[in-house]
Design a binder for these strands. Sequence first.
DNA 1: GCCGGCGTTCACTATCGGTGAACAGCCTTT
DNA 2: AAAGGCTGTTCACCGATAGTGAACGCCGGC
Lengths: 254, 254
Amino acid sequence: MNADGEQLGVKSTGTCFGLLERVRVRGGAGISELARDTGLSKSAVHKHVQTLSTLGFLVREGDRYHLSFRFLAFARQARDRLPFARVESTVRDLAETTDHTTDFLVRENDAVVCAVQTPAGTGAGPEHGEGSVVPAHATAGGKAVLAYLDEAERDALLERRGLPRYTEKTITDRARLEEELQSVRDRRVAFGREEFTPGVHAVASPVLGTDGRPVGSVSVVGDTRQMSGKRLEEDVVGLVTSAAKTIERAVRTA
Amino acid sequence: MNADGEQLGVKSTGTCFGLLERVRVRGGAGISELARDTGLSKSAVHKHVQTLSTLGFLVREGDRYHLSFRFLAFARQARDRLPFARVESTVRDLAETTDHTTDFLVRENDAVVCAVQTPAGTGAGPEHGEGSVVPAHATAGGKAVLAYLDEAERDALLERRGLPRYTEKTITDRARLEEELQSVRDRRVAFGREEFTPGVHAVASPVLGTDGRPVGSVSVVGDTRQMSGKRLEEDVVGLVTSAAKTIERAVRTA
DNA sequence: GCCGGCGTTCACTATCGGTGAACAGCCTTT
DNA sequence: AAAGGCTGTTCACCGATAGTGAACGCCGGC
């Protein structure tokens, strides 16, 4: 059974991507393993995996299956929707000048996804990594996006995702979240204060499209010590908003 | 109907990835468009696309659907099977010293897929790009892999893919191909001479695993003028085989 | 030599993927 | 304005099929 009890139009597509996802997080898996993970019968898993193999999206190696390099083509296409070279270099610069892990998140329907991540040399922060879905209510980058959605879209996203608690500082109250988002709009900056990962602070600034709707956000993350102190914080805020503006220009002209 | 008349275990997975593939090559598509492309009914496409959207792998923008950044996560996982940093830097170096587009192909079951591609500054060669399936019998990199497969595996791959003709120089005869592969084994180098794209030559060298089976190949491509002449060709051959050896070491120790 | 794990195969059946027709909205055309 | 053509969307229907569970052959380790 799928984790989320949503009604899907095409059920087998759900199980198919469920399997792919399991293979991904395990970094390769066998048939029985997947059957246990998903609750499907071995024969069903076998059939799916075989299909995905002949289609060329899973690769068999011995009795383990891995994700194919063909997904690189899909990833490229996703990237091509952004002026990727500019975005990446801007993010990289920001990471270098701040010496912190830097992300560019994009909004996708009712989710926020990490599109670019440049880990800093030193900081081995908690990296979900590119392509992962980020909790909007519990991260700086997520809140930066959320704040600039119109109410209908925000409702849709939050209803879809809920307000799950990750730490004791996670905002799980909708009204409280709205307050926070108002302050984000006031300053055009969002802060993350251990709401997702203990010991991790973050600063983010939104990237808005020509229509004023949020395309995504730029965020810098670091551990609590590094990302506190008035001066430092204000410096980082300036750098982040500046980078966001740069990307905003690039996105709008593209 | 799917292009290939193969029997798939899970049919709807086939149509699902067929749709994703169409979205990819078009760089975004609408429902009716996809229905025409695939021959399915609009309602069927609608259902599939809706499913993929709620799963988060397609993103709706207006009435067009695009591939999600979530595929980056799958791509990352695929890459993690290689010592990626080493492989990429080696390929990049080779591209810079030769000033030609350079590829690293990997074998996957019965296909050869482009895993890394570094385009040279000048040469805007015919780049399928990372993640694309490469015809094994018609490219230097493909032949480098093919030559080191054992007969059963080679048979499987060639039967699966056939020997389609791309140019007048494409090798479409199995016996002729075997001769060529023998010469590849003799020199540990494969050449591509406009067998896939007119005006394009290439040089490739295999990367073998500890078991002697081919992991993939390194190849340098360029236009006919650049990639001819004894001296140049021999120089490139040396550089390519050297790079392949470097990657081979990296792969084996990983 | 046995047990417990694996991947594979097979018939069977309820489920569901796909169809085609009808609908509503939004353009451009007349 | 009205008509036509294009979208995306919905619905009831039916046959194909995704998933089950049991049986099989295989391999490695106690």
